[in-house]
Design a protein around this nucleic acid. Structure first.
Lengths: 272, 272
DNA sequence: CTGTGGGTCGAACAGTGTTCGTGTCTTGGA
DNA sequence: TCCAAGACACGAACACTGTTCGACCCACAG
């Protein structure tokens, strides 16, 4: 509020209560001058997001980060919503894509999903922004093109590719979203996750054994805390499901013969 | 605000500016007295949610619905968060479960997912509450028990069942969530969905054909608007993926012989 | 008749997104 | 060189949010 650090975005005369700048400190030194572009705002917003999380990401805090007032942001950004969209696209561009290799499409798809999750976890709470949003900028061009290059040679129909991209994005976004939320206590007070899990398990184990035999002795499975395994499981289900949509490869002669998919062939993380 | 309808929850003396109640109108008539229980609050909150959506669901509006002030709610509800959790569980209990029939587990699983989506769409924006929340009350007992009864006879390992329940819940929740959000315009202004889709398609079609050949001519597939088909696709992928986790049935002698899963056997909605 | 305590609620606090009007700075043309 | 015009910055305010505090009411136990 009353914090009066130098480096304000404006460059008017200094306030009367403050000592004048010494002449050797160039007032438009390239480091001190922050002309408040949209990019600078995004930088600041990302900093605030990483530090304070989504709940702490208010226009006022972003403005504080730039040593200015909230009204100043609205010249470069129409809305908080637009700011969030831009933030989301900026993070999306951090994902690096390997050269698509259709022979290994399953593993590359998995790799992409893992990387998306990692990126979302790296920038705290960005997952909460991703839901309901489609990267509309160059990001969707990059990702879409990559996905088609990966899956078309395998024989997956175009419509399925489009849907599949959507599905994976939805899955990863939702998963990272829950991950970022943590477990919400049903009582409204905020407790450690362990305590909450223990509450749930206690409840389920207290159920009458005659009415709820199955769920009772699977209580510890229900509230499993190995979150990575859970992620890999969902990924595995989706990839296996997509496999059944792949026709015989059209052109690629190098792809291995399609093994009849029994349960033997999966060397991936299969729980229990 | 200044709306002064009768039926206030309190029963003190009438304000001086108002005419006294006529004697024949019993002041504690059973219909007029709303003793402000937690259940009444949930009813009101659900009404507000259905009418005004999640963004309109404030403590003040719920209190207004009961003709009282926001502070009065906090005696019965610790938090807004707890109120949301209770709301979520209340809606979850609306889902009706058929008698589990393991021979038709795929179709019954699909049916459950469809019903969950319908329930979430019926109560506007409840999906936005569902993410990051687990139904902790009797709901999870019901749903869990049903799921185990459905999938254990098929030979799905317990851990997989637990994960699968989680996965389907996540999928349906995230899907309904996006559905309830609608499409967010990347520019922050609020436009009709058609306009936004047209913006996106226009952008993708304007991409250079040499760099983005694939995504360019699949533009109309990318921004498909048949939302039901998209839901069914994701469901189908998940179910097919889960099929590969099913072992030979343990006890059930009636289940059909497991056909080797080639792409022929799927009569479900397969896009394009 | 008097407490007591469960229940109610007005008022306030700190915080939010957004807008309006005014101010300042930079730039291009005469 | 000077002035008008636009680009940008920002203080102040508005309507709103979730939540808390302390005073109040009132049925019921002693």
């Amino acid at each position: 509020m009353a914090e009066n650090r130098s480096g304000r975005a404006t460059h008017g005369s200094p306030p009367a209560s403050d000592a004048p700048e010494p002449p050797w400190r160039r007032r438009d030194a390239p480091t001190a001058r922050v002309p408040l572009t949209q990019e600078a705002i995004l930088d600041a917003a990302l900093r605030v997001l990483d530090r304070d999380g989504m709940d702490g990401l208010s226009m006022r805090r972003v403005a504080d980060e730039l040593h200015t007032g909230p009204a100043s942001l609205y010249w470069h950004v129409r809305n908080k919503d637009e700011l969030l969209q831009l933030l989301f696209e900026r993070v999306t561009e951090e994902v690096v894509l390997p050269e698509p290799d259709p022979a290994r499409w399953q593993e590359q798809g998995r790799e992409l999903a893992r990387q998306m999750r990692a990126t979302m976890n790296q920038h705290r709470d960005i997952a909460r922004i991703s839901l309901g949003r489609i990267p509309s900028g160059p990001a969707i061009a990059r990702l879409g093109e990559w996905l088609f290059a990966l899956l078309r040679p395998v024989g997956v129909p175009d419509q399925v590719i489009a849907y599949a991209g959507d599905l994976v994005g939805l899955y990863v976004g939702a998963f990272a979203f829950e991950e970022s939320l943590g477990l919400a206590s049903p009582t409204g007070e905020n407790l450690a996750p362990d305590q909450i899990v223990e509450m749930f398990r206690g409840y389920v184990e207290s159920l009458p054994a005659d009415r709820f035999p199955n769920v009772r002795d699977a209580a510890n499975l229900l509230f499993d805390t190995d979150i990575d395994a859970r992620f890999e499981f969902g990924l595995d289900v989706i990839i296996r499901g997509l496999e059944s949509y792949a026709e015989a490869p059209a052109v690629d002669p190098v792809s291995p013969p399609k093994r009849p998919r029994t349960r033997t062939g999966s060397r991936t993380t299969s729980p229990s």
